[in-house]
């Protein structure tokens, strides 16, 4: 079972390292964003920002930060009529901590609590929206390409061609 330990060690190291590479804007082209927060099991995701602008208004992903009127009535009392703030990329507020950490990091605990992690925020927002409008990938392989580590993790190595990401 020693190789198991190696895999665990490898995964842990990979996760720690990947925190450093975060939501990097591909230089020169504003429309394609590489999301590689914890790109261990999967390769980084290439997110076409321009494409999504056609389907959704800013507020649906960026809350109040872009200056649009928040759609969530819960946010309105404070953030109505705001001009927007500089920190409007996801990882400014959504971090990769557990619920306890998010809570203590937030200055306005009373309202900004139960904030999803960065990974959670992506998946919650993307999939829910895709499901809602009936287009866009909703299963893992729609956005993600499995890495070698991922194949080990999901135990796909022994598998032959069929199967995989059905549905």
């Amino acid at each position: 079972m020693n190789y198991m330990r190696v895999i665990i060690l490898f995964l842990t190291c990979a996760m720690v390292n990947s925190f450093i590479v975060d939501a990097v804007f591909a230089s020169g082209d504003d429309s394609i964003i590489e999301i590689g927060t914890i790109a261990t099991l999967y390769s980084p995701v290439l997110f076409d920002h321009e494409l999504h602008v056609k389907y959704a208004s800013c507020v649906e992903c960026h809350h109040h930060t872009t200056g649009e009127e928040p759609s969530d009535p819960y946010c309105l009392p404070c953030h109505s009529g705001e001009k927007g703030i500089a920190q409007n990329s996801c990882n400014e507020c959504h971090t990769n901590g557990s619920v306890d950490e998010t809570e203590s990091d937030t200055s306005v605990v009373t309202y900004h609590n139960d904030v999803p992690t960065l990974k959670g925020a992506y998946h919650l927002n993307c999939i829910d929206c895709h499901e809602g409008i009936g287009t866009g990938p909703i299963r893992c392989s729609g956005c993600h390409v499995l890495t070698g580590a991922g194949e080990k993790f999901y135990k796909t190595e022994k598998r032959d061609q069929e199967g995989g990401e059905s549905k």
Binding site: R139, Y154, R159, E165
Partner: peptide
Amino acid sequence: PAPERPFNDMS
């Protein structure tokens, strides 16, 4: 122990 089918097999 490894499962009979991979974990990303939704079938």
